[in-house]
Design a protein around this nucleic acid. Structure first.
Length: 741
DNA sequence: GACTCCGATCTTTTT
DNA sequence: GATCGGAGTC
């Protein structure tokens, strides 16, 4: 019980109030994660609760893993049998076990957003609706929102209010698309992200015995980041906890940043109504940040009308004032930050891992990366385009998916004519249409293709069907790695990529190798219970990009979106691109609620910082290939100036010089400036001189020694492995490479 | 049906 | 800037 000594009286109350409902309102930096981990540890150690009867739900895999590790360090390996994970992963686990009761096989596929949208797209096309009105983004969001509110397609078309909304937006057919979408997913034995929640609710509503079973299993339920739960998630957990009533939710309304995907802050208030014997604990002391940062953050969140009153304070020292830095361009912003990092590191003896650069949109990482690379600081970008979303990776996965499940329409579409086997769009659509019209499964149609299609189609279709069959047989006798390799080469996919000697082709080929490697790792991991493809696909379907957590002990600076940074803390934080229209995003400021959510996002960004906070913005920025004028965000102006560094001493002289120099160049698009430079300075590099061991410099990627080179003269690009950037393979326009002699 | 080229379009955050 | 779809050609 020695660990309880680390807690203040409020935290202790939250940890030890184990029986009955408990709501913890936890301000930023108030030790929320600590409370949750100690609470679970306390249950296991002091109350001798079986970890298997504790359900702890988080929103990201990262948070779940971190908490699991922390608990394990207190209670040991017992922690492994905890039900701990994201809503999506826990529910998918339950659905794998029980889904057959609502008609899903245990190896159902999970459609990611891309799959869902492309399915919607084809439905819109089949219904011959105007694709401009029925954009897949819009339709997808509409369906997703409905599912998160537990509105089924039949309820959707019968709901007068919704129908009126759709009629007003001139999209009356959304209900119909919704219906077809659901049926097609079911036919493909697939669930999208929202289905994992929606169907869990269906399962529990329609099968009381299943609900009872899990109600008995979960004696204690905990929810992290409760402010981010949507209606559906809340309802399910409420149901699950309604027998034992030991439910503890922890959240902070000021940090609710997921309303855009259906999160309802109201759930916090609802919770108070739903559980009358509720114990409420407020954690208001901040242990993370300096007074200046806490106060500045408070001065921001004050502007929001909707909030639960809370007084976040700290005993920490005053700390440094917040610096606001203005740059001339996004590239200069990067340069300023990399210089500041360099300075801070020297001045305060900090290491790379003490720094984080946070931005609103993923695309902003580019200019930061370039600047950091140039100055030779190691960094790591979190999020962005996931490895598993790359085309070639998805292609191979689609093969694997289709071998396991012959009815997966989206995978079928991907692989039927890739590599080319002469089955065009017309035939593909006909196959799918036939399957829908005949009301038979996709595989049923393919198996009996000769009943439906002419000789020409059959000539290419039959070998495909036979191939899938042979894969299935092969897969049954071999582990995931052997099968996947076999499928990759026999399908012709590997050969197709291998023959593509373009730079992109080579990189694609390497990505496939990487995917195969990760399957090998999966097979070699003795902790896994099973080594087949099925299991591998399940493992990765809910994985995002924080996969390769700790591949090295190297210290790096973290680059990520603010959304991703939630729950993390860093001694020095840079919030970049704090510009009007970008942050708050121009897409967002339609309603007051939207603006308030953006403001909460800004609040989250600020409160990540422990000691020093920099806010930067830029006068000009590239967006969509165009140079745009920008100005300081209203959010900076909203901060009480008491906590800001005096603007007059924020710009140093060399900085001003820099700005003036760039201004003289007359706001030309930087890419053009670069090309001019290249023509005069860099054009000298002769293709033949680019070989192993030669030192080269690139205007964006800095300099390094070439490890390997592949040149594509037609595309004027070269693959260069730089030692300096961790042997990364980069696709570079070789005209931009200057050889250092 | 495959391939190439051109222009239109979309740009937020995540499971 | 990148991606996607359509039109036109082989």
């Amino acid at each position: 019980m020695d660990y309880l000594k680390d807690l203040n009286s409020f935290q202790k109350a939250a940890v030890t109030h184990t029986e009955g409902p408990c709501l913890v309102i936890a301000g930023a930096g108030s030790g929320k994660t600590r409370v949750l981990t100690y609470r679970i540890a306390h249950l296991i150690k002091e109350h001798k609760i079986d970890p298997f009867s504790i359900l702890a739900l988080t929103f990201t895999n990262k948070a779940a893993n971190e908490m699991k590790n922390r608990i394990e360090s207190i209670v040991g390996t017992d922690a492994r049998s905890l039900w701990m994970g994201t809503f999506h992963s826990i529910f998918s686990r339950i659905l794998r076990a029980e889904g057959h009761k609502i008609g899903y096989p245990s190896n159902y596929v999970i459609y990611d957003t891309q799959d869902s949208k492309s399915l919607i797209k084809s439905i819109v096309k089949e219904l011959t609706l105007d694709p401009k009105m029925y954009k897949e983004n819009y339709v997808y969001n509409r369906i997703s929102n409905a599912k998160n509110k537990l509105i089924s397609y039949s309820e959707y078309v019968n709901n007068a209010l919704i129908q009126e909304e759709d009629a007003l937006s001139l999209r009356p057919k959304i209900g119909e698309i919704y219906k077809i979408y659901v049926k097609r997913c079911f036919k493909s034995q697939a669930m999208d992200f929202d289905d994992l929640l929606f169907n869990t609710n269906v399962l529990f509503s329609d099968h009381i015995d299943v609900l009872n079973k899990y109600q008995q299993i979960f004696k204690y339920v905990l929810i992290d980041e409760f402010q981010d739960t949507n209606h559906c998630q809340y309802l399910i957990t409420k149901k699950l906890a309604s027998v034992h009533r030991n439910i503890c939710v922890v959240g902070d309304d000021a940090q609710s940043i997921y309303a855009f995907r259906g999160a309802e802050i109201k759930n916090i208030l609802k919770f108070e109504d739903d559980f009358d014997d509720l114990k409420v604990v407020k954690l208001e002391q901040n242990y993370r940040s300096t007074k200046n940062i806490v106060n500045a953050a408070n001065s921001i969140i004050e502007k929001n009308e909707s909030k639960i009153s809370k007084d976040v304070w700290t005993e920490n020292e005053e700390g440094e004032l917040i610096s606001v830095k203005k740059a001339f361009s996004d590239n200069e912003e990067g340069r300023i930050i990399s210089n500041l990092i360099f300075e801070e590191k020297n001045k305060k003896q900090l290491t790379n891992s003490n720094f984080a650069v946070l931005y609103r949109t993923n695309s902003q990482s580019r200019s930061m990366e370039e600047a950091l690379r140039r100055i030779g600081i190691k960094y790591k970008v979190f999020g962005g385009v996931s490895f598993y979303q790359r085309k070639e990776v998805k292609d191979l996965l689609a093969y694997l998916r289709f071998v396991v499940n012959h009815n997966d329409e989206q995978s079928f579409r991907r692989i039927i004519n890739y590599p080319r086997r002469g089955i065009g769009l017309t035939s593909i659509n006909k196959i799918i249409l036939t399957s829908n019209e005949e009301n038979k499964s996709l595989w049923e149609i393919l198996k009996n293709a000769s009943n439906y299609f002419n000789r020409r189609v059959l000539k290419s279709l039959i070998p495909f069907v036979d191939m899938i069959r042979s894969f299935e047989i092969f897969n049954n006798k071999n582990d995931a790695y052997v099968s996947a390799s076999h499928i990759a080469s026999t399908s012709g996919l590997l050969e197709d990529l291998y023959n593509d000697k373009s730079i992109e082709g080579i990189s694609r080929f390497e990505n496939i190798q990487e995917l195969l490697n990760s399957i090998k790792e999966f097979v070699d991991n003795p902790e896994n219970s099973s080594f087949n493809i099925d299991k591998f696909l399940q493992e990765i379907s809910l994985m995002t990009d924080q996969d390769s957590d700790d591949d090295s002990d190297e210290e790096y600076i973290s680059l990520m979106t603010i959304h991703m940074a939630k729950g993390l803390e860093f001694p020095v934080v840079f919030v970049v691109g704090v510009e009007e229209d970008l942050f708050p995003s121009q897409m967002m400021i339609t309603t007051k609620e939207d603006l308030e959510e953006e403001r909460r996002l800004f609040y989250v960004a600020i409160t990540r910082s422990m000691n020093k906070l920099y806010l930067t913005y830029s006068n000009t920025r590239y967006r969509y290939g165009m140079l745009k004028d920008c100005q300081m965000s209203r959010f900076i102006k909203e901060i009480n100036p008491l906590y800001l560094e005096n603007e007059s001493n924020l710009v140093n002289k060399s900085f001003i010089k820099n700005v003036l120099r760039e201004k003289k160049k007359n706001i030309k698009p930087i890419s053009k400036l670069l090309i001019n430079n290249i023509n005069s300075q860099f054009a000298s590099s002769n293709i033949n001189e680019l070989k192993e061991g030669v030192s080269v410099q690139h205007p964006s990627f800095g300099s390094g020694e070439i490890m390997k080179v592949d040149i594509d003269a037609n595309q004027k690009k070269a693959i260069v492995k730089f030692k300096s950037v961790g042997e990364k393979t980069l696709l570079l326009n070789f005209a931009k490479l200057k050889i250092i002699k």
